[in-house]
Structure formats: structure tokens, C-alpha cells
């Protein structure tokens, strides 16, 4: 029996989820009553096994820019590609069985529309397993359309110059409205062209996952941390003179600790839960010194069952779909294992 063992009826955990914030391209949520192994599995799967689309093959016809073909191809690969399902309009795959469809996270799932190229019976690539993009920019032509004061500047070729041949698939120019409003360029910069230069190429975007290459990772950030359990000896803190309370607040970097009420300044609270565990020892040592009974007034420990996730999407897949696809991927793995264990058990018997 291990130190982790629990009663038979508690072996299957009953986790709970709470969404703390959900924005355009980032979210934060808490999973409770689970285990670090499950939280880590979810993190790993979101980063490495969610299926997305990325440019994988580039054919150059003309490249007189100062950047090598390989570098441009690499930059094109890193541009997030968005697939937007339009109910009723998008033509979905017809070879998806009902079971397969039920196993996917939603109707929006990219695999309802596209196959992996390796699973496709086409020759090379086709509409069902790839999407083609074209890029053709000639400096001498595009410069006619730019304002007079930019005429002697190099022209920046960006993701908006990429033309998709599928109306439901397009490159992501910005992850959020805020980024769009603060950017100095109209999209993701690919290469700069000077007078007389030209670039002409076609790209093929294919399905893949982060395990193959990081360009297929749908998130720029996916982290989790244990939720800290915090307790203060409020009476002891209140009994201290105000200048000593200030010292306690100042023992951590700004913003970690603070007063519950800025005017009252009697009780100290944790303002930044994410950072508090790094400073717990400092606060404890200090409050122990300040305490007349030589007793720390603060206690914080990392929970082993509750975790706070922070996920930030690159724009190709909506942030909540990244997590849903991740959960779905674990589900798929475990279902496969259930079948496999049953087979092994039958063999043994």
C-alpha cells in the first residue's frame, strides 16, 4: 500500500472547474479536487497535442529580397493559421463516422474539415488535407499605393499579403483588438522589400501538432501553479505598531502584499497569489522576529489538489477551444487505453 492510496470509492476524483477570467485571447481557470499529474497532463497536451494548421511547404518562384528562401519559409511556418467553422456554409468531411465525430471536441474541430495529409488518399495534397496560400508582392507596384512620405521607405510584406484559397482558412494578423490598435504594421511582418525587389511564392498549410514542430502549438502560454492556502494571524498583525506593519509589506516586492484598506492599514492581505509562495519564508522569518511570542503570523502552503491555469492563445484556435481540444485529447488517449487494457486482460485470461 502506498502513501497515496485512498478508499476504493474515492479513487475516481470528482474535479471541479472555475473560470476566473475569459478574454479574447487569454483565460485563467482553476481546477479543484484533482491531482498535479492531471493538471500536468492537461498542460502538456494543450502545448503538444492539439491539432492545428500551419504552413509546411513553400515553393518559391521569385525571391529577390535580401532574406534567404529558408528563412522566409520558416517565418511563414510560424504564422498562426485560423480555421473558422461557418455553420451551414463550411463543407465538412464526409468520411468522419458518427463515433469519430462524437469523439471530437465540437463541430468547430478542425479535424471535421481537414484530414492529416498522411491519412489522405490524394496524391500529394488536396482541399481535404491542405490549404494553399499565395504571396506575390512587387515593390515597384505596391509602392504606388503608399502615402507620399513613405515612398522612399522599404515595403514590409506582412501576413495580410497572403491570399488563401479557402474562405474558411486565413492567417491570423493579430491576437487581439488591442494588439491591432497598437501595432505599427498591418499584420505579421514576413520580409522587407527595397526598390526593384520582388517576392512570389505559394505555400501549403497542413495539419499537425506541437509534438512534430512548435509551429503547430496553439498557445503562446499554458502554465499552471498550485493554489496557495493562506492564513494570517490577524490579531497579532493588528497589535503591531504601524511602522512594523509597513516593514512586513515591504519584505516582498511591490504588489505581493498590501493593506486590505489603504486608509485603515491595520490588516495585511496577499495581493498577488501567484508570487506569494516564493516569499512565504521571508514573511514567516520576519513576523517571527517581530512577534512578542516568537511565533510567525503568516502561513502559506501550496495545495496538492487545486491548480490555477493561465492559457494564452496565438489566435489560430480560440483560447477555450485550446483547452477543450486538450481535454478531448486526454479523453481520446484514455479511451484507447481502456480498449487496450481490455485486450490485454482477454489475452491473459
Amino acid at each position: 500500500m502506498s502513501c497515496y492510496s485512498v478508499a476504493a470509492d474515492q479513487r475516481a476524483r470528482r474535479p471541479e472547474v472555475e473560470v476566473l477570467s475569459l478574454e479574447e485571447n487569454q483565460m485563467s481557470f482553476e481546477v479543484k479536487k484533482t491531482d498535479a499529474s492531471m493538471a500536468n497532463a492537461l498542460r502538456r497536451v494543450i502545448i503538444a497535442e492539439v491539432v492545428t494548421m500551419a504552413i509546411d511547404l513553400v515553393t518559391f518562384e521569385e525571391n529577390t529580397s535580401c532574406i534567404d528562401d529558408e528563412i522566409i519559409a520558416h517565418r511563414l511556418g510560424l504564422i498562426p493559421i485560423k480555421y473558422a467553422f461557418k455553420p451551414g456554409k463550411t463543407k465538412l468531411r464526409e468520411d468522419v463516422s458518427n463515433d469519430e465525430a462524437a469523439a471530437m471536441s465540437s463541430e468547430r474541430d478542425i479535424q471535421r474539415r481537414f484530414r492529416f495529409t498522411r491519412d489522405c488518399d490524394c496524391d500529394g495534397y488536396c482541399d481535404w488535407c491542405a490549404c494553399t496560400f499565395k504571396l506575390h508582392v512587387k515593390y515597384d507596384e505596391v509602392i504606388k499605393n503608399v502615402p507620399e512620405h513613405e515612398k522612399n521607405q522599404p515595403y514590409t510584406v506582412t501576413s495580410i499579403n497572403l491570399e488563401s484559397d479557402d474562405p474558411d482558412v486565413f492567417p491570423v494578423h493579430f491576437v487581439s483588438e488591442r494588439e491591432r490598435n497598437t501595432s505599427s504594421e498591418p499584420g505579421i511582418a514576413i520580409v522587407k522589400l527595397a526598390k526593384g525587389q520582388e517576392i512570389k511564392l505559394s505555400c501549403i498549410a497542413k495539419l499537425g501538432c506541437g509534438k512534430e514542430h512548435a509551429k503547430w502549438t496553439p498557445v503562446s502560454k499554458c502554465v499552471f501553479r498550485p493554489k496557495p492556502t493562506i492564513s494570517w494571524d490577524d490579531n497579532a498583525v493588528r497589535a503591531l505598531p504601524p511602522n512594523l506593519r509597513n516593514i512586513i509589506v515591504d519584505v516582498c516586492p511591490a504588489g505581493v502584499l498590501g493593506y486590505e484598506d489603504e486608509r485603515d492599514r491595520t490588516s495585511i492581505v496577499v495581493k498577488n497569489e501567484a508570487a506569494i509562495l516564493d516569499f512565504t519564508k521571508d514573511i514567516q522569518d520576519l513576523t517571527k522576529q517581530l512577534s512578542p511570542q516568537n511565533k510567525p503570523m503568516f502561513h502559506a502552503s501550496a495545495s496538492t489538489t487545486d491548480f490555477v491555469f493561465e492559457v494564452e492563445s496565438l489566435g489560430g484556435v480560440p483560447v477555450d477551444d485550446c483547452v477543450l481540444c486538450g481535454l478531448n485529447e486526454i479523453k481520446r488517449k484514455l479511451t484507447n487505453l481502456q480498449v487496450a487494457v481490455a485486450e490485454v486482460a482477454a489475452e491473459q485470461a
Partner: peptide, 25 residues
Amino acid sequence: GGAVTDLRQEVELLDRGFRDECARA
């Protein structure tokens, strides 16, 4: 077999919880 089944159940609950919470948010 028991471990895999328990985990499968847990992920199902996580999935349902996450969908509900996103809808609420």
C-alpha cells in the same frame, strides 16, 4: 483497468465542468 476507467471518468467531469463554466463566463 480500474485506474484507466477512473481517469477517464475524471476527464469527462473536467470536460463537462469546463464547458459549463465557459458558458457561464
